[in-house]
Computed example of a mutant assay.
Amino acid sequence: MDRLTAARVFVSVVEQGSLTQAAEQLDMSTAMVSRYLAAMETWLGARLLHRTTRRLSLTEAGQSALPSCRQLLDLAQDVEHQAGAAQREPAGRLRIACSPSFAEAQLAPAFIDFQRAHPRVSFALLAADRSVDLATERVDLAVRITNALEPTLITRPLALCRSVLCASPAYLHAHGRPATLGDLQAHRCLSHAFVNAAQYRLRREGELVELPFADSFSTNETAVLRRAVLAGGGIAMLPTYFVGGDLASGRLVRVLPELEPETLGIHAIFLSRQHQPLALRLLVDFLAARFGGPTPPWDAA
């Protein structure tokens, strides 16, 4: 049997969670999917999946083999893409999901720049502070900011998300600037309901410190939190991709700069690397080039 197809079947079974759904995705019979899986296990000399009547799970050998199989499929796709890319132009509509704050501050201008180079590509941007179900909501690409990704997701790192504790000059003038971690608890603290939840996670000399606080203002929207801080409401933790301009202009002032809030990853997430539209592949490459590197563009200052 074709080993490339067998690798594709194995990856699809893992991603879909069942042989039946993988068979539907690949337009094969369930029996053929089973034969390809058996062939893979014979070639590798190890069992790849634990199979019960209710669920499938990867064996240790399967966990080791999965990244290599995905890399093999990526390589095959790259060869195909490079051979035909010169004759194709990206086109079509892409449905993208992302948090409202990152969509507003970074993705919207990035998409406009992308469209200048590829005018036949259009976007439907779903801005929501929740993890969307890509299959159910027909999302081509989700951009998520987290350090806790499910291992079965297909992802590509785009950038790092750093945050700062900050306040307005007016608030610090009225209430003083905290000098120690203990001082912070005596101040008015504002929080993001989903991110901070009345607790800051900070690094001090490499050690992670969790500091609970009584929040005087909480919201589920980063833009609202920023507006409250600018109005002099107190101290909050905000991402630099959203408040970099405020810090550079002096509208906001960093507080306790020796304390480093936890750095998160910004990831591109999609359902499958197989048969991706050219526009989606080019967009992910574009975003990785625009935002990537040890220092994202919004932190360059």
Rank of each mutant, 00 (worst) to 15 (best):
E137V: 04
S34V: 03
R8H: 02
R203V: 03
D74G: 09
D215H: 14
Q82I: 13
L4H: 06
G265A: 11
M40W: 14
R116G: 01
Q106A: 03
A97I: 12
L107W: 13
R55H: 09
A193Q: 12
G244R: 11
G62R: 11
A38D: 14
R54L: 12
Q199W: 07
D133A: 04
V255M: 07
T53P: 09
D74C: 11
F291Y: 06
A83P: 08
A135D: 13
G293Q: 11
E104Y: 13
A231K: 15
A103R: 11
R177I: 04
D78M: 10
S272H: 13
M32W: 15
T152L: 14
L4N: 04
G293K: 15
H118C: 04
S131K: 13
C166F: 09
P157H: 12
R54T: 12
A127C: 06
P67V: 09
A128F: 11
G250P: 05
A197Y: 11
L238K: 03
M237N: 02
L125T: 03
P157S: 12
T53L: 15
F242G: 00
G292S: 07
I145Q: 03
E221T: 08
M28K: 04
L259F: 08
L58S: 02
E205R: 14
A85C: 05
P169D: 04
L165R: 05
P277K: 05
R55G: 00
A117R: 13
L271A: 12
L153S: 05
V195Q: 07
L256G: 02
A167I: 12
E258D: 05
H192I: 06
A124S: 05
D74Q: 13
Y241A: 01
D246A: 03
S191Q: 11
M40S: 06
A167M: 10
R144T: 07
V9K: 05
V224E: 09
A248L: 04
P212W: 12
